[in-house]
Design a binder for these strands. Structure first.
Lengths: 221, 221
DNA sequence: TCGATCGATTTGGCATACAATTTTGGCGCA
DNA sequence: TGCGCCAAAATTGTATGCCAAATCGATCGA
């Protein structure tokens, strides 16, 4: 994404996640272009991306509104992630190179650093992202990468990480480590199973939180 | 999609699939806007869609090229479809309404009409598309719908339908019919299994063809 | 007073002009 | 002759303006 488009994207996403734009509230492109201090062209590009990700919706006449979060969606989101990322891990097991294995180890060590008290959440998210990206790359499926980008970009996911408790950070590290072993052995089913477990665990950790905090709370935490 | 964007999309897709634009060949937005007889703005929108679908690629500096088909990609494509569409069928089993069941039956009857000799391929594709769309709608997952749009839009899939033999058309009808029964019984695992079978069969039918014809041949058939 | 229709205003779609960036070709120097 | 740098050309990125369509409100009629 380009400079102005990125700016528009960031601004709009921020506005939605912080609740400054209420769900179901109609918004206009012009309005957004003023808020983001760019013209309507990059705003339109940003919106089409956000539409992809499900944060904004277009009415059948083309009017824009902020999507409202259905609580059921979290389950759907993670089910899809489980499917697709499991598939990626399965494929990666027979395709990954020694160099990529080494990269995974390095990313996981950085994650380990990040979760040492005091936990550096940004660094954690960063290392985690890198780890998963390497696997997707190793799976050699451009389609998978594209699909996951949509599912993982969901800001609610990373936002809620701020509420993870420490044991979850630790298990992330452990599960990643085991996944590396499975990939190194070139065992697709093993890799897939670990990835599935990994994501389901994260889902349930989030799912518990969800009952006590709203998305808006989470991002502000 | 809007009028001009749609036009641009159709023209560019046609050019790529008929091989008038060779893979790896660099193309420019201006060039395409001339060919499609619209301005660059809708062309850019069309391109971003085609990029999603994997038909065109952008270099890291923003230059455009036609993607080249890897033969391995067909397997990847169908594996992902199997995953996601199986998931949709599973969810639909517990969510589908009697009205939607009726719609499915109707769509499948139209499909039946279409595959009677002489086979009306366009009508077949149309009915088939409707059938699958209803299931996706019943699965009540906007994300699933969005993802599948990318996977199914792949024109090579529908293009190759022109080479299906008659028995495949018949089994499509039968499998759809069984899927309706499974959905009507509200059995998620049954529905998922049938859908998985259905797509895998289609994959192998296509995969056999692939060895004898190229994508370009297929579209011209 | 309620409803419908027509007009004004808003909103999105598209084209075009301009700016920034990248590529390419040529020229000079080693 | 080859390498590197600079400039010009080409290409993408961004802004703006105009047009068509849709929405909302007001006024007129029943």
């Amino acid at each position: 994404m380009t400079r102005a488009s990125r700016r528009a994207y960031d601004v709009i996403q921020e506005l939605i996640l912080t609740g400054k734009l209420a769900p179901a509230e109609p918004i206009t492109e012009t309005e957004l272009s003023v808020l983001a201090e760019v013209s309507r062209t990059p705003v339109r590009e940003a919106i089409s991306q956000l539409e992809n990700e499900g944060l904004v919706t277009r009415s059948e006449t083309g009017r824009l509104t902020v999507s409202k979060w259905q609580s059921e969606e979290l389950e759907d989101l993670f089910s899809l992630r489980t499917l697709v990322e499991g598939y990626a891990a399965e494929r990666a097991a027979t395709r990954i190179s020694p160099a990529e294995i080494a990269e995974l180890k390095e990313a996981n060590e950085q994650l380990h650093e990040a979760v040492r008290e005091p936990v550096d959440i940004t660094a954690f998210l960063d290392a985690n992202r890198r780890f998963h990206d390497i696997i997707i790359r190793a799976s050699a499926s451009k389609r998978t990468a594209g699909i996951l980008a949509r599912l993982v970009e969901q800001p609610i996911v990373s936002a809620t990480a701020h509420r993870y408790d420490h044991s979850l950070f630790q298990s992330s590290y452990d599960e990643h480590a085991e996944l590396i072993v499975a990939l190194d052995h070139g065992d697709p089913l093993w890799a897939k199973a670990i990835m599935t477990m990994h994501i389901r665990r994260a889902y349930h950790a989030l799912s518990n939180l969800k009952n006590s905090v709203t998305a808006t709370d989470a991002i502000q935490a």
